[in-house]
Computed example of a mutant assay.
Amino acid sequence: MLSRNRLALPQMIILIFAALLAACSRGAENASSSSTYHGYLTLAQPEDLTPAQLQDGGLLQVVATTSIVADVVTNVGGDAIELNSIIPRMTDPHGYQLTPGDLRMLHDADLVFINGLGLEEALEQTLAQLPEDIPIVSLSEGIQLRELTSERTDTNADHETEAHADTGVDPHVWFDPLNINVWTDNTAQSLAALDPANAATFQANSDAFHNQLEDLHNWTLTQLEEIPQADRKLVTDHLLMGYFAQRYDFEIINALLPAYSSAASPSAQELADLQDSIRQSGVKVIFIGINSNRQIAEQMARDTSLAVVPLYTGSLSALNGPASTYLTFMQYNVRAIVNALK
């Protein structure tokens, strides 16, 4: 891997400005996105990566986009890598804007891991401008994806929501712990390709994390037994629990924001239709992201006599919080769902 010089501050500012302009001009261009759901990015496949040129004793420099991605990479890479995360904890990944420090971190990376599937759409233009010798790997490559249903695509939404509709897939794959097995394998294979000397360490860490994910899945099944089948119905702030519902046999009744992005805005007609579907379904709870705007949920709760229950959704909690790792993130959410619906 070739050596790289740090970006000067003026160059960083220019890149940020260019990314902001691009984010507002996507529109029809996204309609021709490729089947990999990353219209701006050229993604590297783990099997195609080649060893990085590390100095003696030097660690692989790795960047992850979200705190959830970073936690999985940490479990696999351990002390054999130096890992930085772009989007801070307790921050919604939809619409995050890069800082000059983020750009410097990306430029110094040997490898960048992303969730992919349009989740980091606000970052994609800048990621696409990184040097070709900095590979970008989507951890979600190989997951069986949930397609965006046709009735969800005709919505009154902003730029980001239109992009999710155009890609046609749900990016919130981490709500199914068994999907994280794919993330784990992609991480281990990618790290081993760039740093073969530590391949055995990465594989051992991967095996151990697979066991933890299997334990989490089995624990979740046991916890959810407390919820009667008739009550396994979810209303959320946006369409984010699809993989969870698919894995654990729940029904998605509706969402306050009829899109895969928390940045969407519902129309008056959509809110009226949502109230009707809630009343007909008999649900008693709205689940919203802890970092989400509660205004619409609280108004809907008043109008329909529902309780509002917060969940961690696109980010881990603070390090001293109740959802500071992926495993505790899922445990917190499962307990909250069980307590609300049992």
Rank of each mutant, 00 (worst) to 15 (best):
M1Y: 14
Q11Y: 02
I13K: 14
L21Q: 14
A22P: 00
C24H: 15
C24D: 14
C24F: 10
S32R: 09
G39I: 11
L41M: 08
T50S: 15
T50I: 15
T50M: 13
Q53H: 11
Q55C: 08
G57F: 05
G58V: 01
Q61L: 00
V62P: 12
T66Q: 06
S67T: 07
V72I: 14
V76S: 00
V76R: 11
G77H: 00
N84Q: 13
I86P: 11
P88S: 06
R89V: 03
T91L: 07
Y96F: 03
M105T: 15
H107N: 15
H107K: 15
V112Q: 09
N115W: 13
G118I: 10
E121F: 11
E124V: 07
P131V: 04
I136G: 02
V137D: 05
S138P: 04
L145N: 00
L145P: 09
L148T: 15
S150N: 15
R152K: 13
T153E: 14
H159K: 15
D166V: 09
D170A: 03
D176P: 06
D176M: 03
P177S: 11
V182N: 03
V182F: 04
T184Y: 12
T184L: 03
Q189F: 13
A199F: 01
T201W: 10
Q203E: 07
Q203I: 00
Q203A: 02
A208D: 10
A208N: 08
N211K: 15
N211S: 09
D215G: 12
H217S: 12
L221G: 10
T222L: 13
E225A: 03
A230I: 12
R232C: 00
K233L: 07
L239V: 07
L239T: 07
A245D: 03
Q246Y: 10
D249W: 01
D249T: 11
F250Q: 03
F250D: 06
A255Y: 13
Y260M: 12
A263P: 06
Q269E: 10
L271M: 01
D276M: 00
S277P: 01
R279V: 12
R279A: 06
V283D: 01
K284V: 08
I290T: 08
R294Y: 13
I296N: 03
E298M: 11
A301C: 02
D303C: 02
S305V: 05
V308G: 12
Y312R: 08
T313C: 04
S315E: 02
L316G: 00
S317A: 07
P322Y: 06
P322Q: 03
Y326R: 06
Q331M: 05
V334P: 07
N339R: 11
